[in-house]
Design a protein around this nucleic acid. Sequence first.
DNA 1: ACCCCTTGTGCAACTAGTTGCATAAAGACG
DNA 2: CGTCTTTATGCAACTAGTTGCACAAGGGGT
Lengths: 368, 368
Amino acid sequence: MNGSEASRRDSGRDGGARPTIKAVAAAAGVSTAAVSQAFNAKGRISEATRRRILDAAAELGWSPSATATALRSARTRTLALVVRRPTDVLGADPHFSELITGLEGELAPRGYGLLLHLVADVAEESALYERLAAEGRVDGAVLTDARADDPRPPLLRGLGLPAVLLGAPHPDAPVPTVGLGNQGAGIHEAVDHLMELGHRRIAYVSGPGELLHTGLRRAVFEETLRLKGVEPAAVLSTDFSEAAAVAATEELLGMTERPTAVMYANDSMAVCGIGAAQRAGLRVPDDLSVVGYDNLPIGRWLHPRLTTVDQQVQRVGAAAARALLAQCGEDVPHVALDDRPRLVVRESTGPTDRPAPPITSSPPYGKT
Amino acid sequence: MNGSEASRRDSGRDGGARPTIKAVAAAAGVSTAAVSQAFNAKGRISEATRRRILDAAAELGWSPSATATALRSARTRTLALVVRRPTDVLGADPHFSELITGLEGELAPRGYGLLLHLVADVAEESALYERLAAEGRVDGAVLTDARADDPRPPLLRGLGLPAVLLGAPHPDAPVPTVGLGNQGAGIHEAVDHLMELGHRRIAYVSGPGELLHTGLRRAVFEETLRLKGVEPAAVLSTDFSEAAAVAATEELLGMTERPTAVMYANDSMAVCGIGAAQRAGLRVPDDLSVVGYDNLPIGRWLHPRLTTVDQQVQRVGAAAARALLAQCGEDVPHVALDDRPRLVVRESTGPTDRPAPPITSSPPYGKT
DNA sequence: ACCCCTTGTGCAACTAGTTGCATAAAGACG
DNA sequence: CGTCTTTATGCAACTAGTTGCACAAGGGGT
């Protein structure tokens, strides 16, 4: 066995032979303890010796083995992000790319890694956390899509695994919660915007009711509207899928008192909604105004450009990373997320003055 | 220090106190070696003893520490995926979500994890691989976006890190390459489709020329067209960004001999192109036919629905994972990727009402 | 000149599993 | 009943760093 290992190393030329701390110590003429102290800025080492050790390490291309360090310190410098993927929805949802971008921006400079996992449902997700904790693979986890009676916060607390929950900050949650303050502000602003444009028949296409963030936004929608003395034209729940967004839109357009404006729980659904409306022969925004949520990049380039709510997913991701790192004992300056979701007005919303025209039920092209 | 550790464990109640192999051995009344053998199905252990050990482990909720196992075996069961993010393009590109889905489907059942990193450019990417290799953090890496004179394959080979390169399979590449066979087939099919519809002035909006896959597709486009005796109306290079797609489209629409069809290097750009065309007052497909590439979910729901090329990113991701796992010594059945990219005809392409210049060489229906 | 204090360095034990080798126990056979 | 197999089990060393503690060396004060 030793023989095969040796030959594998030889074949790897320079890079294959990983130097150990002993090689560095020998090269610098010190003990391995000195090398360790030089790298961790602990203990008492003369600056000259430190330099000599660091030079020797650089010469050999040595970095401390993450595995050995993790074993000794019981800290892996790795965080978990588990994405639930009900029915391949992730593939369509660029939301997560933004979140990951925000997380990585904080993790990378501190040498942390992000371990990404995909699961089918909550049960699988819980089992995964149990395994990750039992194997000691990660130092903490980012939880997305908080839901009512979410089993994950108590589970992770029981496992001794630090976690942050993305969503509306909530003081007595079992784990810290990170999110823009005043979550409802964007919806509030959007409703105001539509009403100023003259809309009174406004519908809302929501996500699954058990997810807290989408439930909250839907509640704010209804509340804001009623404060102005107007009843919601309709409120529909979906599973966030494109197909459901199209189905919901078709249902709304088939109403006798058709809404003049529709707000969607995310941009992906809003884009599908616009497509469905156009297919039904309606013009956006002339016949129907549409508002999205997320401010995905693509919304700026569609025709019409999408009016949406910017919730700065990247910044929330960065804040989540900082909160989690702080729980893991890293020295992270706390930066307050004092912003709030903001409406971005573009072209998919416009004034309504006409009584709703009847729907032309002639599809332009009768294809799939 | 021991005191503080003990108190931390006590405070963690049940889950906080990670059991060790010793605890399991004691509970089962055997040595730690027996526990190890029971879990790894090695050595010679009676089935009864094995059962007793496994039960004890389940009772205590013990799994072997990934860190300790990794230290001993020099295998972390973790693979790296590094995404280059020129200017926040990732956020817009659901392509990666699909790839990750495909990778995870193979990794998760084998207990492997995916370490995701984002970098700004090739230099940063190379430095990252060097660090990951030096620290022994991963067993291998998935490389995307092969480019001409790509520095990464030789680098990773030098570092002794297994890797797979996504793209056209290429026998004498320094690292194994994974991709659908006959990469050009989809483009070929798309050009045929457009010519059957009567298009003769067809333009191509490509990605950066140094990326092999987009360069190859562009070459196939030009070649296919010329084989039919038609010159490309225009071929433009972009950086894959939405802004560049819009700019390219506007340039094409401003030509005196405006193209009647445009093919884009990916769906995101095609969607932006449709938006730009509509904004310029053109109808798609009546005035301009558009073809994308990738078959992203959203393309099915736009108006018009997007005609595109399906290259089955998920399946390629799964194949890449298998190839990499095989290199890492896992016993993975080799599944051939014998498929090829295929055209998906939807609504964004249609017959051109403009007079088509007569074809000189081959008839439009005489295709492969 | 002696002692003390400060500073630098190394030994050895520790992290949590894995594994080669020795040995013990049990059954088979002469 | 003793010896030979066969099979099961445990000891101890090993993976690559980290760290408490002991000790050595140098400088300053009395």
